[in-house]
Simulated assay, not measured.
Amino acid sequence: MTTRTRAPRGVSRTAVLTAAARAAEHERPDRLFADPFAGELVEAAGGVADLSGVCGLAGEHFVLRTRFFDDVLLRATALGCAQVVLVAVGLDARAHRLPWPGGTTVFEVDLPELIDFKDAVLASAVPACHRVVVPADLRGRWPDALLAAGFDPRRSTAWLVEGVLMFLRPDEAAGLLDRIGLLSAPGSRLAVEHVNGAFRRLPQMREVHRQFSKLDAEWYSHVDDPDTWLTGHGWVPEVADESALAAASGRPAPGITDPRRVGDARIWLVDAQMSRSD
């Protein structure tokens, strides 16, 4: 299909990688999740031929990450988080494809041009929740835009920060978590992904960094101790074991995250709850 809206460019191109992995998973008879929208988004974005090497390296991780965060968000909403905020949402179609409880509002925060692109492609798709788009740059005053869009900081919220922190500088990543904390009522949850320094330095990642640099999508940060880091920002984290996630799903551990192949290198997948209760 074609769309008059400009396809993702620059760092936004990385969102097409995840969508491509989700589209491929949707076609499997033993799929871990359904995403009937991902293929349409990838096609409209012009495919991923320019980043095919990254897809082959990280596709299995993207699939497990997607299922893990799907489960985290659905648990959080079942437990009473009636608001969900997808930070740097990219081409994520969770607002359309997940079975949200009645009354759930999903806020999608990302750059205006990326949101416009996705809205143009999915113009005929009906969300499975009350979906609210929030065009904003994470380096700007996005909390003001979120509040103006109807977000209520007095209500518990499930936050998702997926595939973005490594592209932020350490002070920007810390500032993002600080702002999320200030907007989070007791009972809120935070689902977050980051990497450690050993992962950034993997020989397998050199080509990824080279391809990303062409998109002005350099990795600027990592976290070696996610427990201490998130605790310092007011959250009680639980770090998932991706090899265990793979085994529970009947899949082999992704090569890029399998400790037998990458040693101490880690991609952190975390489900955290707000530490304060009043």
Results as ranks from 00 to 15, higher is better:
Ala253Cys: 15
His233Ile: 07
Gly255Glu: 06
Gly255Asp: 14
Trp229Lys: 05
Gly232Met: 11
Trp235Ile: 04
Ser249Ile: 00
Thr231Met: 11
Val239His: 08
Ala246Ser: 04
Val236Met: 14
Gly234Leu: 05
His233Gln: 13
Glu238Leu: 11
Asp241His: 12
Leu245Asp: 01
Ala244Ile: 03
Gly255Asn: 09
Ser243His: 13
Gly250Phe: 00
Gly234Phe: 09
Gly232Trp: 11
Trp235Leu: 06
Asp227Ser: 13
Asp258Phe: 03
Asp258Ile: 11
Trp229Cys: 04
Asp241Trp: 10
Arg251Asp: 02
Asp225Ser: 09
Pro226Asp: 05
His233Tyr: 11
Trp229Ala: 04
Asp241Leu: 02
Val236Cys: 13
Thr228Met: 13
Ala247Gly: 10
Pro254Asn: 02
Thr228Arg: 15
Glu242His: 12
Ala244Met: 01
Pro254Trp: 03
His233Trp: 10
His233Ser: 12
Ala248Lys: 11
Pro237Val: 02
Ala248Phe: 09
Gly250Trp: 00
Gly232Ile: 10
Asp227Tyr: 05
Ala240Glu: 12
Pro254Gln: 02
Pro226Phe: 04
Ala240Asp: 02
Thr231Ile: 14
Pro252Met: 02
Ala244Gln: 08
Gly250Asn: 05
Ala240Tyr: 07
Glu242Asn: 14
Thr228Ser: 15
Ala244Thr: 10
Ser243Ile: 02
Asp241Thr: 11
Leu245Thr: 08
Ala247Gln: 13
Ala246Arg: 02
Asp227Phe: 06
Pro254Arg: 00
Ser249Leu: 00
Leu230Trp: 13
Asp227Met: 03
Ala248Glu: 13
Ala248Gln: 13
Leu230Asp: 15
